[in-house]
């Protein structure tokens, strides 16, 4: 009898336990309630999600409008049903986005792409970042009111995490106004992947540059082949020691292609600068003298070393629409 009662009691208790669990299961089914029993406070406070588009229950496309937390973190039954011993950690959720048990990039990205495979992410598969095992949350932070990578003032820092040289570029003498908060990486790049080159927003370099520099678009009557081929033939857009984001100092940025020209580019030297030319020694004296054979000291200045170098005269170097502009002078 006692044994029977004991069995009944155990079964009853087990039933109570099941009922208790079934309640949890019911709570878990909305993917929120159970999770918030722990994750509404530090150290893992997830409640900021409710201040974001992901947390809007009324939007059926939002995680909270679907399966709640489990929309992104997976079913995670083992996580919320496990009973770790004292001092032990609970079994990790199905998909973990950071920390020691972080899921693979593929697993994390899969959750995001469930909803975000359209628009700018259409070419994510096979993109440079995907191929290098970058996960969405390497750049994006979901559990904050405003994702820093979507804010102009904070986006570059996120990109610099991997692209550190671009941060150095932003301090160079000429640079796009990134540190000044007027241009961000995403103004030119689509980091989610593109069919074109260098993850650019437009299909190629020039089309991207024309977004802001429309006056360079043309077509012009006289086109400069290097310009039409790629702006990068002369410019390095992330930052340069030179003015105007040039790859190197004028006039050498020109002469590296126009080395056949009759403008004597290769022999340019310090004697052609004003400071030196004005102190030319007399005939027959030391190095640096510039004199004709009659003994007259003359100037050896080259305007191609001053100010904008070759562009002083060929000032329509991006293209000219003047019938008299075939040398890009007009």
């Amino acid at each position: 009898m006692i044994l029977r009662n004991l069995v009944i009691g155990l079964l009853s208790g087990f039933a109570i336990m099941l009922l208790s669990n079934s309640g949890q299961a019911a709570e878990a089914s909305d993917g929120v309630t159970v999770c918030l029993k722990c994750h509404d406070r530090a150290p893992i406070d997830a409640t900021a999600i409710f201040k974001t588009p992901h947390g809007v229950k009324g939007d059926s496309r939002s995680p909270m409008g679907q399966g709640g937390c489990t929309s992104c973190h997976g079913d995670s039954q083992a996580h919320y049903q496990s009973t770790p011993a004292q001092g032990q950690k609970r079994v990790a959720p199905t998909v973990v986005f950071k920390g020691p048990a972080t899921s693979s990039p593929e697993a994390r990205n899969k959750m995001c792409l469930e909803c975000h495979e359209n628009g700018l992410r259409m070419d994510w598969a096979g993109s440079q970042h995907e191929s290098n095992q970058v996960a969405c949350n390497n750049c994006h932070t979901v559990h904050v009111q405003k994702d820093p990578v979507l804010v102009k003032s904070t986006q570059p820092e996120k990109c610099y995490t991997c692209h550190a040289a671009r941060r150095a570029d932003s301090f160079k003498f000429s640079h796009h106004p990134i540190n000044e908060g007027k241009v961000v990486c995403a103004d030119c790049h689509n980091p989610h992947g593109t069919g074109g080159e260098k993850l650019l927003k437009e299909v190629n370099v020039n089309e991207t540059c024309y977004l802001c520099h429309a006056e360079k678009r043309g077509p012009f009557l006289w086109e400069h082949e290097a310009v039409r081929d790629s702006c990068l033939n002369c410019h390095t857009p992330h930052g340069s020691n030179e003015a105007r984001l040039l790859k190197t100092h004028l006039p050498f940025v020109c002469t590296n292609c126009h080395s056949d020209d009759t403008h004597k580019g290769g022999s340019w030297n310090a004697n052609m600068l004003p400071g030196n030319a004005t102190t030319l020694p007399a005939v027959g004296t030391a190095t640096g003298a510039v004199a004709n054979n009659t003994g007259a000291v003359i100037s050896a200045l080259s305007p191609r070393l001053l100010d904008r170098g070759c562009v002083n005269c060929h000032s329509q170097i991006h293209g000219s629409n003047s019938p008299a502009g075939n040398y890009f002078n007009r």
Binding site: M1, N5, I8, G9, L10, S20, N21, Q24, C38
Partner: peptide, 27 residues
């Protein structure tokens, strides 16, 4: 006795069920 046994047994099982819940609801 039956009720007592059941109550006792279920009481014994209850901590297990509660323990699961407590793991979620630490505070």
């Amino acid at each position: 006795y039956t009720l007592r046994a059941a109550l006792l047994a279920s009481t014994c099982m209850l901590p297990l069920a509660v323990a699961q819940a407590d793991d979620f609801d630490v505070g």
